[in-house]
Every structure is written in structure tokens, then in C-alpha cells.
Amino acid sequence: MRVYRMAERNIGIEALHERVHARCAEYRVEAAPDFVVRTAPADIDRERENSAREDRLEGRPVVPWHDEYLEELAVYRQIAEKMPAYDTFLFHGSAVAVDGWGYLFAAKSGTGKSTHARLWQQLLGDRFTYVNDDKPLVRITDQAAVVYGTPYDGKHHLSSNIAVPLRALCLLQRGAENSIRPISAREAFPRLMQQVYCPEDREAFARTMGLLQELTRQVRFYELSCNMDIEAARVAFQAMAPSGS
């Protein structure tokens, strides 16, 4: 077993293949685990079925993934099932940091959240850091929601092993012009639910709902209509960053 630290937890991983360890290498620690995840061939088969089901739903050809890759997914799923017990949930979105503040972009797949994050990088240069471009963890504390880099960072592997307080969560949609408006938690909630990991375990699911309630008290929500011009990043950043940024 090797132990990795993500979102303030030491996670023991016992895997069948080496690849998941390679993915997580940067997060390795020598410590006793808070919990352990183990994969069995059945977990890999289940990921294969899930992936095929999603492909069919989206009308794509079914991709024959290798076991190594499917095991990586199985491991993160098990981590996501455990994390609500530690006030943490997995969120599908692109998380970035600027001047020490976290911003999380969420949208349906294919809308362009990663493209938008890249525009922020172009606009802000050295002030910008990727936290996790695909599946960050978010931990709720008494003071703030904190977004964490993890090794599960999308196809371009854009992430850093850092934690930043989450300032805003921005729901993206494509538009001809660039415009942004603050929205209420009530308005944001149905779309948040589409991007948050919903555990299969009832207890973990109920905890996740409680964490989302907390999130709505700690974070500002925005809806951004944007195109792919750098102006989109300017409009979004100016609206969400502390004044004077």
C-alpha cells in the first residue's frame, strides 16, 4: 500500500496496476492512512460498464479503455465516496487560482470551461495557477470553502498540489457576446447538482447535500455567457475578483 495526501487526508491505495500510483506520485506521503481504498477486478468491470453507458447515452462510439485507466477511475470513485465523511466533495469543473483566490468554472462537457480557464492564464500570466482543470476536491470549513488540486486533472494534466479558498463559482454557457451576472444559490443549485459527485452510499450522499448547502453560504455564484476571445476572461475576472485586482 502507498499513501497519498489529498484535501488534508492521507489515503492508502492498494491497486492492481502501477498506473494509478504513477498518476498520484506527486501526492505521495509517508504517513498512516486515514482510510484505504482497494480495487478488485469487479471495480474495473464496473467502470467499463459505466463508461460504455455514458458513451451510448451521448451517442458516441464505445471506447475500449484499458484496465489501467479504468482502475484509476475506480480509485477516484472510491475516494469520492469516502470524502464526504471529511466535509469534502468532488466537483466536476475547472478550478484556477489568481492572487491566492480560487475560482471554479462549471458547465456541461464540451461547453468550453477548460478553454475559458486557458484564457484566464493568457490574461493574468504569472498571477494565474491551475488548481485542477477537471475534478478538484472542495472542502467545507467553518471559515471558507477550500478547493484542492488532485492528480485527477483532465486530459491535459493541468493541476497543482495546492489549496486555495474558493471565492466564486461560475456557471458557463456559450454566447456571442461576453456578459456575466451574479446569480442566487437557488438559481445555481440545479446546475451544481449536475456537476457534483453524488455518492451511491446514502449517508455520504446526505452529507454531500449538507456540504452543498454550506457552499451556497460561503461562495458567490455567477453565470457567464462567453465566447472564446480573451475579452471573455477580462469580463469574468473583473466581475468576480476583489475590487482593485
Partner: peptide, 19 residues
């Protein structure tokens, strides 16, 4: 299903098999 409240509005969300 699990009941949850956001700013005074209630939602029933399916969990596990129901989902």
C-alpha cells in the same frame, strides 16, 4: 430520496438505485 433545502426552496434528490 433525500430532501434538501436551498434558500427556502426544497428539493427531493434520488440516491443510489433510485438515481
Amino acid at each position: 430520496m433525500i430532501l434538501t433545502e436551498i434558500e427556502g426552496e426544497w428539493y427531493a434528490v434520488p440516491v443510489g438505485e433510485a438515481a
